[in-house]
Amino acid sequence: MTYRTILSTLVGIALFGTLAANANAAEYMIVDGTIPDSLTGKPGDAANGKKLAINRKKGNCLACHVMPIPEEQFHGEVGPDISDVGSHFTEAELRLRLVDPKVLNPDTIMPAFLKPGTHDVLKKFDGKTILGEQDIEDVIAYLMTLKGQYSQ
């Protein structure tokens, strides 16, 4: 099933707003709640992925998730603790979760890291995605290393 097919289904049931601004977004294929193929074909760099997860201007995952990063203060609790995600998710599942979590849960607060905003976007960020394709591969590589409980 192609991305486009799923999108038209969604539009059909009128859950989402306009998709016009998505026209120039990245190409990827969603299959059964996953994006199986790497976005870049290049392996992810876990060390850089960790930096992106911390960086408030990039992934800022810590805003909402507890992660095994004791050197950083203030882990948010809006989303679940993800210090063990590597044991529960495949790369393909994580890829869709990061690219566009609204496909999984239309009402989620978690940002779509590879889809530009479509309404009242500050000029500086207009048409821009929060992370780039390789950034997402890097974050996935880092998440796959997270195996085991961690308490803050």
Binding site: C64, G76, I109, P116, H119, V121, L122, K128, I130
Partner: peptide, 21 residues
Amino acid sequence: RGGLDMSCKNCHMDYPGVKIR
């Protein structure tokens, strides 16, 4: 709205009492 594509509701109706950073 915005680059993060969030509504006021996403934060203030869905998560009162919850830590965000």
